[in-house]
Design a protein around this nucleic acid. Structure first.
Lengths: 221, 221
DNA sequence: ATTATATTCAATAAATCAATTGAATAATTT
DNA sequence: AAATTATTCAATTGATTTATTGAATATAAT
């Protein structure tokens, strides 16, 4: 094999990973899997894809080495192959948000209207949590919370927010987080809590980025 | 715009970056640009693509926000948009090399035959360079060397290696580096130098990764 | 003004990709 | 053993991507 052929072959392999990331549906599936392992039907449901289509995309991701599946009875439970996949997704998102005007425009018109406050960096939240001067709110569904969450976080899905306002105190800050920096649920939670007079803000990242940074996490309900 | 539409739109934008990385030729172009800015004809030449094809790929990369072009006379000089692009390429390559059996197989059969020694980590090279106990060899073409290189490195393109053996001493280690971890030139250089009895090894990364790590660099010849 | 050079654009054909539909496979339940 | 459930596979269709070819555009040289 010549040097030129070798390089072409090598870059073709690298391109396989790029191709796997070149589809919006697969990126969304990866974000769901970043919260914890899940079966095909569950993934189809949260991403509004057919089961067959979801399965095809998962095969593609698997061939690219980004996810791993394990059998559990009739189900195949998929999970991300490793933290390096989260790092790759994080890196791709940073480049896109930094350099694509359309990303900025989308975020401005859809999210920043809801919450234009500066998000709280992870390190600052960690500091405040240690001082016991903040309530950490996880607005993801219960099974994602169970798979892993920030220490001391309370889990209130958005639909039940008003039924659990007793968790919050008017003189204490609330920091809400979700699946990633652009998860609408966190924005909505902050928006509504602020309407009730609570000092609410968003965490800068989602749970996967927190975990990737090596920060402490808890599991279970 | 509904929440679902927003997410789809956002992931579609992220997918644009993924698509840009889903082609072997574009990945190679990005690796060349990671060594310094270059014109279309020069890029076409080193990548063995037609000028029209190269230009098309560069337009694609530009639309994805990965490269920037500036006019200089008749030429358009392209460069990477920023260090975050190098970080993204690094991340993608790490995932591929970690999780694709084909990558390992290719490297084993084509590169590890030439040089199966453990590469030298950047931090170790920095330490040795400070002690003055190592010769740093850059085997890239002169214009890439001029655009940026490791401090104190000497530049000997591979074709001229034998004509410059006086640069090396038998009792001192030589560390060779190139465009990236899989650049054949560094492997060849190490292989040949070892044939002449020199204590040669490869640097773990290429110049772009060294620079991304914030390590000191020099410019000019 | 004309020619040369470098780059980009547009049209085309071939290859690849994504979603759908229905079939096939595997595991579990009845 | 048969039926149900969960997943994957295969074929098809339409959309997208890539390389090629020739034309168009912009800049520089003559």
């Amino acid at each position: 094999m010549s040097s030129g052929n070798f390089k072409q072959e090598l870059f073709s392999q690298f391109a396989r990973v790029g191709k796997a990331l070149g589809n919006a549906n697969r990126l969304e599936l990866l974000e769901f899997l970043a919260q914890g392992e899940r079966g095909v039907e569950a993934l189809a449901q949260v991403s509004s894809l057919s089961v067959a289509n979801t399965s095809q995309h998962l095969q593609h991701l698997k061939q690219a080495g980004l996810v791993i599946g394990r059998k559990q009875g009739q189900q195949v439970l998929y999970r991300l192959a490793g933290d390096d996949v989260i790092a790759l997704l994080d890196s791709l998102r940073r480049v896109a948000e930094q350099r694509l005007a359309d990303v900025d425009r989308l975020v401005a018109q859809y999210l920043r209207e809801k919450d234009s406050l500066e998000p709280v960096p992870a390190t600052e939240l960690l500091e405040r949590a240690r001082n016991g001067t903040v309530t950490v709110l996880d607005v993801r569904p219960a099974e994602e919370f169970a798979a892993g969450h920030l220490p001391g976080a309370i889990n209130i899905p958005l639909a039940e927010l008003e039924a659990h306002l007793n968790h919050f105190q008017l003189n204490e800050q609330v920091v809400a987080y979700c699946r990633g920096p652009y998860c609408v649920l966190a924005y909505d939670a902050v928006s509504r809590l602020r309407e009730y007079g609570f000092k609410a803000r968003r965490l800068e990242d989602g749970y996967p980025e927190w975990q990737l940074a090596g920060l402490p996490v808890e599991r279970g309900s």
